[in-house]
Amino acid sequence: MTVAMHAIEIPANLDGNGLVREENRWRKAMASLLKDKSALFGVLILLGVVICAVLAPIISPASPHEQLLSRALKPPMWTDGHRTFLLGTDHLGRDYLSRLIYGTRVSLIVGFFAVFLTGSVGLLVGLVSGYFGGKIDFVLMRLVDLVLSFPFILLALATIAIVGPSLTVLILVMSMRIWVIYARVVRGEVLSLREQEFIQAARSIGGSHFRIIFRHILPNVLAPVVIIASLYLGRMIIIEAGLSFLGLGVPPPTPTWGGLLSDGKVHLYTAWWVVTFPGLAITLTVLGSNLVGDWLRNVLDPRLNSL
């Protein structure tokens, strides 16, 4: 599956650092965004969600925490003409729309941090493993196999149950699994890059390992990292919601989409809105990130279609 592309393209646009071609590729990607409707849609969704998260206190119609039992489980505005609560209230009489808007925060924080953390770790492991090969490579790749052979959700449940749920724990636990995906892909890329002329050239003029890895190889493996990050952001958000749903996410009263679903599940028979809206919010956000991921993959590196 590895690379004829680099070998063909590099001699044409190379400026000596292997950087020009990269810049072209990224610029081309940006230009294609305006033509690709679904990608544009994805970017707009993600932008909207980020705005909701950042401006939550300003755009929320009410407090997400203020309880009033006398107004518990009021249906959405358009079904009973009640003017105050656009999406109704939850079982403790809290404004549902506000809780949904605040819920974006945990999802995005966990998603972005987990993706960033795993991206950095996986990138580093992949670079080292692929570049140096030999024993380091063998050990790191067995570690990857080990991580891949664990039932992730069960292990995540067990770990959170042992150390107790919190935002940090959640991010770390979710990162346990995903870094290996970056590591594997990056390693494969590095293996093929390692033998290319421009790397050989850099080595022959006495470039240090550090310089070769970070100046010459790194820019060429950033594309797959960005693609994986955007494709897995959505998965992360779903997993976070799932863990919160099981009561192992960020503890209440912080509103999370998974937590809203788990609170709402009990009222499934009487109040459809408390189980419907959080799922729609998750779906929309994940759809946005998947669309962006697909677009980046198509533009930057279509070979990664099995991710």
């Binding site: 679903l261 189980v275 779906t283 994940v286 759809l287 998947n290």
Partner: peptide
């Protein structure tokens, strides 16, 4: 299939219950 991949399966499960059971 792009849309389905974005749907959390446990939420879909709850929606199924709401539609088919309730």
């Amino acid at each position: 299939s792009v849309l389905i991949q974005a749907v959390p399966d446990f939420w879909l499960a709850i929606m199924f219950i709401m539609f088919f059971s309730v």
